[in-house]
Design a protein around this nucleic acid. Sequence first.
DNA 1: ACTTTAAACGGACCTCGGTCCGGATCGTAA
DNA 2: TTACGATCCGGACCGAGGTCCGTTTAAAGT
Lengths: 227, 227
Amino acid sequence: MLYAGFMSATLPPFPRPPQEPVDEPELLQLGSPEDSPCLRADAARNRARLLDAASRLIAEHGVAGVTMEAVAAAAQVGKGTVFRRFGDRTGLLMALLDHSSRTLQADFMGGPPPLGPGAPADERLRAFGVAVLYRLVEQLDLHLAAQSDPTRRFAHPSYRALHTHVTILLRQIAPDADCELLAQPLLSYLDPALIHHLVRQCGMPMERLEAGWVDLVSRVTGTAPSC
Amino acid sequence: MLYAGFMSATLPPFPRPPQEPVDEPELLQLGSPEDSPCLRADAARNRARLLDAASRLIAEHGVAGVTMEAVAAAAQVGKGTVFRRFGDRTGLLMALLDHSSRTLQADFMGGPPPLGPGAPADERLRAFGVAVLYRLVEQLDLHLAAQSDPTRRFAHPSYRALHTHVTILLRQIAPDADCELLAQPLLSYLDPALIHHLVRQCGMPMERLEAGWVDLVSRVTGTAPSC
DNA sequence: ACTTTAAACGGACCTCGGTCCGGATCGTAA
DNA sequence: TTACGATCCGGACCGAGGTCCGTTTAAAGT
C-alpha cells in the first residue's frame, strides 16, 4: 500500500465540467497529505491500489508499460475508475511524482540552508537548481512521460510552486527586475525534456549541467557564487 | 497548390528503419527548397495536395481539425500515404511551418542588420528573439500542435538551427562561457508553450514579453542595449 | 434497521494515430 | 514499345486514450 495519501484532490464527478480549473492540491501551502475532499472509503482504497499497481508496472515494464487499461487490470478495477480518479494518464503519472514533489518543496521552503531559508537568496537559488536537477534525473523517464500537453505544462500547480519559489528568491536579489518573467528561463533550464536531451542525447555529464546552472544564476542575478 | 516545395526531404520507404536518423532537410545550410531525393511524380503531386489540404483544414476547423484521416480524405489520398510522406502528425505540421522557418533563417543568416550580419552580436541576439517571438504568436496554435513529444523536441533540425545560431552569437560575446549550454535557457524563453502560457493564460502583453527578452539577453551576456 | 441519494463503479464504445502488405504505378533500360 | 524493378498507394487493422451511462454501494439522515 505504497502511495497511500498522494495528491488527495478529487476530480469533479465524471463528465468533467468543460474548462473549469479543477481544484488541485494547494502545493504552495504544503497541504497536509491526508486532507481535503476525503474520498469515499471504496474510492480511497481503489486510488491506493491504482497507484500501487502503476508503480509496480513501471518497475516491471518501464513507463511505457503504464497503460490505463493495464493499470486498471493490475489493480482489479474498471478502466473508468482510473480516469475518474486521475483525469487522464498525465494525472496518474503526476500523482506518482507527487511524493518526491512534496518532499522537495518541503526542503526548499522549510528545510536547512542553503536550500531552505537562512542562506542568502542567490545561494538558495543555486542550491535549488542543483536539487531539482538531481531529483529529475533520478526519475527522468517518469518525468518525461508525465509532461502533459504543452498547453497545460506551465499552468500545473507543481510547476507553479517552483515558479513562485524562484520568483520570490529573485525578488530578494533583483527587486527592480521583472522577476516573474525572469524566473521562466531559469526554470526552463530544469525542464525534464532538456535534461533528457543534454544527458542522453548529447551525453553531457551532470557536472557540466550543474556548472551551467550555477553560471546561469550568476549571470541572471549578477551575483557570484560564495565558494 | 500552395506549399509546393516545402520540406523536400523524403522518408525511407515505409517500414522506416528503426532508429536511423531520418535524413532531414539540412536547415543549417538553407538547402534549396527544391533539392534532394526528388520524389516520384505522383508522390510529389500527392505531397503538395496533402499540404494544401492540411492548410485548408486548419483554416476551416483549426489545428484540431487536422486529423490524419481528414487530411487524407481532403486530399483524396489514402491514409498510408500521409504517413509515408510525413512520418507522423508532427512531421506534417512541421512541414506546414517549414516555409516561415526557412524565411526566418534566411533573415538572420543573410538578411539586413540588426537581424543579419553587420550588427554587433548582442544587438543581433536581441533582434533575433523579437523576430522569433512574433513569428511564434503569428501561428501559435500550429506551433503548439507541432511540438513533438518532448523526447524529440530539442533534437529536431529546426530547433538545432536556432540553437546553433544563438550559440555562435554568444561565443562572439562571451567566448569563455559554455555557450552551447547557455543558449538553451535563452531559447527556452522562446518556447511556443511558454509564450502560449504567458500570453493566453496570464494575459501578458507582447511588449512585456519583448522587454523580458531584451532584459534577459542583457543579463546573460552582460551587455546593455544600444538605444 | 430502513430509506435515500450522491458518489463510485465497470466495461462497452468511440476516435485517432500509427502499421502492414497486396496490388497499382512510375521511370528506365533494352 | 515493352518489360521490369523500385517506389508508391490504399484502406483494413491494431492499440491506447478517453467517454458514456446503466448499475452498485457507501454513508448520512429518520
